[in-house]
Simulated assay, not measured.
Amino acid sequence: MTLEITRIDPFDAAEVDAWWDAYAAAERADRGADIPVWSREETRNAMQQQSRTLERRPLLLRDGGTVVGAAGLALPLKDNTHVAHLAVHVPPAHRRRGVGSTALDFLEAEAAEAGRTTAQGDTSWPYELGSDGKGAPGREFARRHGYALALGDVQNRLALPLDLEVLDRIDADIAAATRGYSVRSWIGPVPDDVVEGWAILDASIDTEAPSGDLDIAPAKPDVESIREQEELLVRQNRLPIGTVALTPEGQVAAYTQLVVSGDDGNAYQWGTLVRRADRGHRLGTAVKIANLRLLQHRAPHAPAVYTYNAESNAHMLAVNTLLGFVPTERMGELQKHLA
């Protein structure tokens, strides 16, 4: 086998289609035919984005003109610029031939040439396999190539529609704890008068939430980055739904965001965080409930909400259990030091 690794033109429809076909085939083979993956058009629009915060390098893997896999390198440009995010997707028909290993070596070399010293990636496996993922193809591939499990996550799924009476009961239970705070929700971009507070929480979520052994530092709050992300959501036909809890002085004490895919119809939980000074007031529960109410009003036919949380994040997992989420899958955040 002579593996050809080429960077694709994100505006070449055929190349993007070939990349997505390999990616989706590999993911579904390992995780199940019904698992949620980025849609073809969501992927295409992300590849085409001219971002000031992230450089994306999508790559096709070919053997004699036949596409045998897809890969990707993502390089943060604003924060954690010592990190490179790597991804390799090889459909089952092309495995056990060195395709994945050769592609990973290539990605690591590209990352090192770009001055990155830490390589990170992720892989998912059935919940029943346990925290280590022993036996799962992606986990074993990563293990063989020196990638440690830096953080273990649990995917949880909430079937919709929700019984609103359940939300009413939880609201009543937390009313005393949240007294003095106000909750505000919206659909679409974050309102200008709260976006700075939102950006502060969003920038710190990767390090304020449990981060295990991940080699990352807090990001710098940046409203422009929030707006760039919102522009991409519009192009991807994704609908953001946001909620904040505000102090009596109008400061953002907590935030949460759901993003509804216009392609598969599911809602995906993005960040949820409560400011340290305001913890202990059940604000995480309060903002999630308000967001779920708005979700059911705006997207009543959404089949489910998917969320990921660190397995060590007992508090947020307890909130999810209270709301009716059930564990469905695990994800390992993997890491290898290149220098």
Rank of each mutant, 00 (worst) to 15 (best):
I216F: 04
Q269A: 12
V154T: 14
Q269S: 09
N45G: 01
A142E: 07
G32T: 06
R157F: 00
H94F: 15
E231Q: 11
D215M: 08
G100H: 07
D34A: 14
P248S: 00
P91N: 07
A302G: 06
T247C: 01
Q269F: 01
P92R: 05
A254G: 06
L239M: 14
A175R: 11
E311Y: 11
S124D: 09
D17H: 14
L334D: 09
L151H: 06
T321G: 15
G152D: 12
R44P: 05
S261V: 01
M1E: 10
D163C: 08
S124N: 13
A46P: 01
S39C: 00
P240I: 00
A22D: 05
V68G: 12
P91Q: 06
A70P: 05
S211D: 13
K134E: 13
V319A: 13
P91W: 10
E55M: 04
R279K: 05
V260H: 01
R40T: 02
G135E: 10
V223P: 02
I8K: 03
R330C: 07
K78L: 14
E4L: 02
A148Y: 00
V195E: 11
P240D: 01
D171S: 14
Q296A: 04
T117W: 03
Y127S: 02
E15P: 03
Q50H: 12
Y306I: 14
V154F: 03
G69T: 06
R52C: 11
G152T: 12
S39A: 04
P248N: 10
E42I: 03
D278I: 05
T117K: 10
F325N: 06
E165W: 03
P303Q: 08
N309T: 13
M1V: 12
R144A: 12
L246N: 02
R238M: 11
A70V: 04
A26E: 04
D9Q: 06
T6H: 12
L323V: 02
R116D: 11
R95D: 08
L104I: 09
W38M: 07
D171P: 03
H337N: 15
T102D: 08
G133K: 03
K288N: 07
A109F: 00
G146L: 10
E231K: 11
L338P: 15
E55S: 14
S261P: 07
A219K: 12
G152L: 04
D206C: 11
A142K: 01
N237E: 14
H301R: 15
G180D: 13
L107P: 02
Y147G: 04
Q155T: 13
H82L: 07
A299P: 06
I170E: 13
V223I: 09
E333W: 10
V154M: 10
L151C: 11
S185P: 04
S131K: 07
R157P: 00
E231M: 12
I200P: 00
R57T: 15
P189H: 08
E140Y: 07
V67P: 10
R28V: 01
P327C: 09
A33I: 04
L158G: 06
E224T: 05
T117A: 15
R139G: 00
